[in-house]
């Protein structure tokens, strides 16, 4: 049953991806990419990664789709018409790269294999420590916030820096204009 759900969800992902490539209407492409994220979130729920699914649904399907729509209002809604002939070189390159990536997965341990190398290094220590020392049921939180607290501090700083960067580029100028009561003409590149 789970296999069936996985196959259906992956098929939907494939169909949406082809549709995004196919459409020339950028609004349709944006909404489809939101649908792609939502389907990915469903797939992550099927993989028991509910917290990642939260993030995918909120950021991928929600916030980034809205940001893309905001961008669309500044640009045009239709892709410029280009001729769609198949170029052999890039196609070959993509096929070879894809085949290599799939070949690379052959060596990987099966999904959820308890003897996978990644699960034998520090994971047993974390599992035992979370049970005995930290005593909270959610091991992911224990690892992220406590064992890997330094990494998470770095990630939070990265998010903060990203926000500062966007505000420096987009935020400030508008406010100055509003304070001055006049709006300078938009400097479009």
């Amino acid at each position: 049953m789970e296999l069936l759900i996985d196959i259906v969800l992956l098929a939907i992902l494939g169909i949406i991806a082809v549709a995004i490539l196919w459409t020339r209407h950028l609004f349709v492409a944006t909404m489809l990419s939101g649908a792609y994220s939502l389907t990915s979130a469903a797939l992550l729920v099927a993989l028991d990664a509910v917290d990642v699914a939260f993030t995918e649904a909120a950021v991928g399907a929600g916030i980034s789709t809205v940001l893309m729509l905001g961008t669309l209002t500044l640009t045009r809604r239709r892709e410029k018409a280009t001729n769609r002939r198949v170029s052999i070189g890039p196609l070959l390159l993509v096929i070879v790269t894809g085949a290599l990536l799939i070949y690379g997965t052959v060596d990987m341990p099966a999904f959820g294999d308890p003897n996978a190398p990644a699960l034998l290094h520090v994971v047993p220590e974390y599992l035992a420590g979370t049970r005995d020392d930290i005593q909270i049921p959610n091991i992911v939180t224990a690892i992220l916030a406590s064992y890997r607290g330094f990494d998470t501090l770095g990630e939070t700083a990265v998010i903060f820096t990203a926000g500062v960067g966007v505000l420096l580029l987009l935020g400030r100028r508008r406010e100055e204009d509003e304070e001055a009561g006049t709006r300078r003409p938009e400097r479009e590149a």
Binding site: I63, V66, G70, T71, V166, L167, L170, G171
Partner: peptide, 8 residues
């Protein structure tokens, strides 16, 4: 903030 910067 990022959304408001874009939306502005």
């Amino acid at each position: 903030l990022i959304f408001l910067a874009y939306a502005g």
